[in-house]
Design a protein around this nucleic acid. Sequence first.
RNA 1: GCCGAAGUAGCUCAGCUGGUAGAGCAGCUGAUUUGUAAUCAGCUGGUCGGGGGUUCGAGUCCCUUCUUCGGCUCCA
Length: 646
Amino acid sequence: MIKITLPDGSVREFEQGITALDIAKSISEGLARNVLSAEVNGEVIDATRSINSDATVKLLTWSDSEGKKTLWHSSAHLLAEALEALYPGIKFGIGPPIENGFYYDVDPGGRSISSEDLPAIEAKMKELAKQKNPYLRKEMAKADAIAYFTDKNDEYKIELLNDLEDGTITFYQQGDFVDLCRGPHIPDTGFIKAIKLMNVAGAYWRGDEKNKQLTRIYGITFPKSSELTEYLELLEEAKKRDHRKLGKELELFMFSEKVGQGLPMWLPKGTALRERLTDYLKKAQAATGYVQVITPHIAHKDLYVTSGHYDKYGADSFQPIRTPNEGEEFFLKPMNCPHHCEIYKNKPHSYKDLPIRLAEFGTVYRYEQSGELHGLTRVRGFTQDDAHIFCRPDQVKDEFLKVIDLVFMIFKALDFKDFTAQISLRDPENKAKYIGSDENWEKAESAIIEAAQERNLSTVIELGEAAFYGPKLDFMVKDAIGRRWQLGTIQVDYNLPERFQLEYMGADNQKHRPVMIHRAPFGSMERFVAVLIEHCAGNFPLWLTPEQAVILPISEKYNDYAKKVLEVLKNYDIRAAIDDRDERAGKKIRDAEISKTPYMLIVGEKEEQSDSVSVRKHGEGDLGEMTLELFAKQVQNEVDAQINAN
RNA sequence: GCCGAAGUAGCUCAGCUGGUAGAGCAGCUGAUUUGUAAUCAGCUGGUCGGGGGUUCGAGUCCCUUCUUCGGCUCCA
């Protein structure tokens, strides 16, 4: 008999060789039907593998992320089985579980697999799933494994095998399909109840663009068909919120082939929104010791030779602009920091001056690969809400605290309630690849961690993710439908102060090198607005929305009163417009609802007589009649509450 | 940049196997003077992304180029 410790701390005795599935059965049949895999002494294994000694066992189901992974990984095998049945001789790369589902990279030989083929493959998978074929684990010597795939002519699997250490290789078989695999897998294919193949795409073998491009088939599966329905609904919702679609519908921004790809143009409404964000941040920054600067859009090549960016990115940049007579080279600026370093150098600094915080809404241009461009989130010209803080090493923590506070304030005003920070530190195994002294790194890394702790920021620490020039903290927000986005960033930089020979005079009358901190709470205005649009589905917070109210006169007769209402609202700093088209109220209301205007003010005879408006709120409906003054005050209160949401 | 898909009116889309373009909305004009998600009628609007080719004839077939979309690779 062996002792099995369960997560609740209870210990039960079982026969040696028991499986996790048996343990589940001993608890309840229902549980047994839901067990996908098991964590035994910290290792995730098949629920059908025997356990031969005392162990701590956690049964993994759909509610565990490891359980999901098991189902999806097994689903990838099921996909492969279906493909092999439909496309004999097809070769397989890898087929892992991913964040939402799984994929399999395949080489269909001379054939091609397109999205039109997916329904047939899906049907085959469903057919195979119904057979409830068990996933059987087999062990094989490496040489035999290579022989097996040589026989099958699958060079990809052979390559994978060659990279494995000698010894025993594990295989899994379900139905007629055998795959090289570490596992674990679900007990049988019958656990896969709902299947959806999403799309096909090209993917390089082993992620290397020099390698052959394979066909990647994405899919997702669920243990309950209702979950698939929910998932597809979420995708629909995401589609509705797509900032590219809403940006067009709400007339926020546009692209033009003539202007160039990846170069957004902000329409009047989008500009109004963006400027409001900019003003908000400028005010907040002015209050926390930043000074604004403005630098040109191009700079001499020498600036980037000094900064080191020329060597690193010169070839991948927009090509230089040359002066006609001298032939000097100028680059469109890809970042603002080198300019700001020059501003810092404009005069000598005392330790007493520090920190110096130079802020600029700087528009930068980067040559992104054409296939990379995506709406406002990935563009070739964008404006960073940039600032560079030049400070002493002992001031890093305090500066981080201040930036974190600033970011908190912004997130609250924009209704981002769920956010975390990722702190990227250097790889302790490979300190040589980073610039800057050990002492400074340690100081900065602990300063960042302490600052995050002091502000109760939930953080994930990633070792080895730091840039070569310094550690950083990135903010990740979760939007209204649960997607994660990376927005603001705070980065320590030891490189540029060195390269630009930045200095300050210390209390010891010696020259010292300042630390530079790059920070951008929004990241870029473009990306931020894109995320904001998707977060609020185009229903912007009242303080930010381009038009807060629209006045809808019932008929032409009340246009004059509508104008009076507009004047009063203006005096209250409320952004409004009149819809004086020759249309019925129903039509005007419909259009205002579609344009997501927060308040509709219907004015007719009774309103005119009592200096009032009938208020309808977007998405909610009729709020009834109220005096104009009362409405204006309510709007003001709502705006104040949003901006000062603390 | 690479693989795959797509590009028809301002927007959303139809146009079977080639026979010289169509709807709804928007816009304009007129009628209507309207009370909480579409008043009616008429009209305008497209060198079918660009260029080349095949053909008696191309939105439709072929080549090329640009852009967009889904991925891959990349992201100072």
